[in-house]
Write a protein that binds this DNA or RNA. Structure first.
Lengths: 225, 225
DNA sequence: CCCCCCAAATATGTCGACACTTTCTCTTGA
DNA sequence: TCAAGAGAAAGTGTCGACATATTTGGGGGG
């Protein structure tokens, strides 16, 4: 259901790759709670592998900022402080704003049609209030994901999809955040998509930045309570 | 002379840490040419260590985007294509623009004074045309570095300082780019610094983005020739 | 009763060896 | 002569074991 595409996988899958995915999923879904220490022997035993590939996986998790490793002290699942979460939104504002601008300039007509289709699908989902929260949460990421893809800037895609989005999802699982601004967010999404469809890069960037800034402030308010 | 500060080092230094720094320096300075294959046994022998820590170092180099690793095929030093170099400048435009905005809002008066001092030092250096190119190159990074630090956004600092700046430096070493726009760049720097000193975040972001965009276009022109 | 110090236990860092994959080379056949 | 295939060589992936650092627990002293 979630269209967070892994960039093209290598033909042969190494053990470290497989364990990396498994542990990442376990962390993002909160199975391994944030802040908890990760014991290499324990995890290696759980997955039935040696410590070598496990360390490789942990190292990759560190590079995606899901775990922290300190020499001779081991690895811990990161627990995002409120400030760190807000920091991520600031970066997303900058990067996704740029992504929206580039998407308006370079996205293919087909991709724009897909984007509009995704939005109309979201619209119908939002009307069914029961599924609202779940679909809006994942659907929100899908929308941002498609625009980032449309930017055509591979490094931009990597930074956002491999690092920041996983963090955002982990945080949502962690705090069970229900969005009560699904309808509002959907309207903002529509405005961005329209600007892209009209090839107005400057406006698309401005709208996307305002959208993310609004989301950040909503979270900020929620955290202060 | 180069103030690219490593974020606070752990007390104990592991072998993998040391080799990571050494290999990174070798790559950035072009000692290990871009695109060349990295043989684990060879490098391990050169540094007198086992393949374990070396692989850890290679993994960290991969996470900083200085080497590419593919399963069962080994590691290669990345060789930036022209497009990839330009992609980095697009991301820098977005991120450093935001950094300048934040710096204008949050930088301490002392830090701003340091920034102005750095610029006046650059001014005197630019007048001595012989050292111009070298100092301008490194000084340029120092200037950007100080502003990014002033943003106070730790993740922003990490992304720029640990990844993108090293790539930019490698590319400069690789192509031996001499900047013939040192004087112009210096003026642009001064404008950004002034906007920060006046706490005008919006202007600071606009000026920084224009500055980086101008640099990108200068490179673009140079590459097409 | 609390604090400090020392030792055992546990975990991480490092190493060497083995297995499997990839690549190169040489042979064989058309 | 060239192409295809088999075998060898080199390299990466994985494993188990040892060395070193950290943590934990207990004992002694204040």
């Amino acid at each position: 259901m979630v269209a967070v595409a892994e960039s093209l996988k290598p033909a042969t899958l190494t053990i470290a790759d497989r364990v990396f995915d498994q542990v990442r999923q376990a962390i993002v879904q909160g199975e391994i709670p944030p802040g908890s220490k990760i014991s290499e022997p324990v995890l290696a035993a759980r997955y039935g592998i040696s410590r070598g590939p496990l360390r490789e996986a942990l190292r990759r998790l560190e590079s995606t900022n899901l775990v922290e490793r300190r020499p001779n002290l081991g690895a811990r699942v990161i627990s995002l402080s409120n400030d760190q979460l807000l920091e991520i939104y600031v970066i997303r504002e900058a990067l996704e704003g740029m992504a929206a601008r580039l998407a308006a300039e370079r996205m293919t007509e087909d991709a724009i049609a897909d984007l509009q289709r995704l939005l109309s699908q979201h619209r119908s989902e939002v009307e069914r209030t029961d599924w609202q929260t779940y679909f809006q949460q994942e659907g929100d990421l899908d929308f941002h994901f498609q625009i980032v893809q449309g930017s055509g800037n591979q490094r931009l895609i990597d930074i956002l999809c491999n690092d920041l989005y996983h963090l955002a999802r982990m945080y949502r699982c962690q705090f069970g955040m229900k969005s009560d601004r699904a309808a509002v967010a959907l309207k903002e999404h529509q405005l961005v998509a329209d600007a892209i469809a009209e090839r107005d890069g400057e406006l698309a960037e401005w709208l996307m930045r305002r959208h993310i800034r609004t989301s950040r402030r909503a979270i900020e308010r929620r955290l202060q309570r």
